[in-house]
Amino acid sequence: MELLFFYMFSAGIIGASLLMVTRANVIHAALLLVLTFFFMSGIFILAGAEFLAVVQVLLYAGGIMVLYLFSIMLMNVEVSVRLRQYHRQSFFAVAASLILIFEVWTVLGRGGSYPAFKGFSWQLGATPGNVEALGSVLYTKYLFPFEVASILLLAAMIGAIVLAKRTIDR
């Protein structure tokens, strides 16, 4: 049953991302990317990584896509839709993807024989409770890095305001 869900979500990811890269309209591509994120969060749930699934939906589909859509809306989309698309990089793109496929195949084809995979098991239908486990460690053992993360966010916020306000005011 879980294998069925896994294939369903994987087919969704592949289908949505193929549609995404072939759209001429950038906004359609961005919305298809959101769909891909949702299917990916399904895969994360199947792997028992519920926190990653929530991050995928809340941060990627919610937050980062907003930034993508805003940067798309900052440019003239209508002009780029009407332009003839050119594929001068197609040779390099095909070469790079072939190398990537070869790398993935060599790593996955050997199964667990790599030292980095020792003691690591990824299985469908792992026990849930990923969020609880994270919560019990993050707020006790890793208290200091957690509080430092808020300082990092504060620095990012102030930096964004300083940079953007100067551009707007000018």
């Binding site: 941060l59 930034l67 805003f70 900052l74 916020m157 964004a160 306000k165």
Partner: peptide
């Protein structure tokens, strides 16, 4: 461009 600044703050 103001929307973009709000977008960044929202993301944070």
């Amino acid at each position: 461009i103001r929307f973009y600044l709000l977008g960044i703050l929202f993301l944070l």
